[in-house]
Computed example of a mutant assay.
Amino acid sequence: IKPGSSVNLSLYKGFLDGKLAVQLQANDIFNTSSSDLLLYSGNRIMIYEPESRRSFGMTVRYKFNATKSKYKGTGAGDSQKSRM
């Protein structure tokens, strides 16, 4: 890992035949993404240190009335494909 680069992680798990999904996210796990800013202005030196970019999140999705496609296909375009 290069210095100053961040390590992110995402985990996804589906439940109940795909109706329920849970995703966990973690950004900048080791808090290494720093971008300090050093400003020179005449006889002043200013150092700006931004806050941590580390973040964690969780997403929960549920599909109500989720139905699978009943389309079976009849091959209606097969004759046209074979003609070409």
Results as ranks from 00 to 15, higher is better:
Pro3Gly: 14
Pro3Thr: 12
Gly4Thr: 04
Gly4Pro: 05
Gly4Asn: 03
Ser5Pro: 02
Ser5Gln: 15
Ser6Phe: 12
Ser6Tyr: 06
Val7Lys: 07
Leu11Met: 12
Gly14Thr: 00
Phe15Glu: 00
Phe15Leu: 10
Leu16Gly: 00
Asp17Phe: 14
Gly18Glu: 04
Gly18His: 02
Lys19Trp: 13
Leu20Val: 09
Leu20Met: 11
Leu20Cys: 03
Val22His: 05
Gln23Thr: 04
Leu24Glu: 02
Gln25Lys: 13
Gln25Ser: 08
Ala26Thr: 00
Ala26Trp: 00
Asn27Ala: 15
Asn27Val: 04
Asp28Thr: 05
Phe30His: 07
Phe30Ala: 10
Phe30Pro: 02
Asn31Lys: 11
Asn31Ser: 11
Thr32Lys: 04
Ser33Thr: 00
Ser34Asp: 13
Ser34Cys: 01
Ser35Phe: 13
Ser35Met: 08
Asp36Phe: 04
Asp36Ser: 12
Leu37Val: 01
Tyr40Asn: 05
Ser41Met: 05
Ser41Gln: 09
Ser41Val: 08
Ser41Trp: 05
Gly42Ala: 01
Arg44Ser: 07
Ile45Gln: 15
Ile45Leu: 15
Met46Val: 09
Ile47Phe: 00
Tyr48Ser: 02
Pro50Tyr: 08
Glu51Ile: 08
Phe56Lys: 01
Phe56Tyr: 07
Phe56Ile: 02
Gly57Pro: 06
Met58Pro: 03
Met58Asp: 05
Thr59Asn: 15
Thr59Phe: 12
Thr59Glu: 14
Arg61Val: 03
Arg61His: 06
Tyr62Gln: 08
Tyr62Arg: 07
Tyr62Gly: 05
Lys63Thr: 04
Phe64Cys: 05
Phe64Ala: 07
Asn65His: 04
Thr67Val: 14
Thr67Asn: 09
Thr67Phe: 09
Lys68Glu: 09
Lys68Ala: 15
Lys68Thr: 03
Ser69Asp: 15
Ser69Tyr: 11
Lys70Ala: 11
Tyr71Lys: 13
Tyr71Cys: 00
Tyr71Leu: 07
Tyr71Ile: 09
Lys72Ala: 12
Lys72Leu: 13
Thr74Gln: 10
Gly75Val: 00
Gly75His: 03
Ala76Cys: 06
Ala76Ile: 10
Ala76Val: 06
Asp78His: 10
Asp78Thr: 11
Asp78Asn: 14
Ser79Arg: 06
Ser79Met: 09
Gln80Tyr: 13
Lys81Ala: 12
Lys81His: 11
Lys81Arg: 14
Ser82Tyr: 13
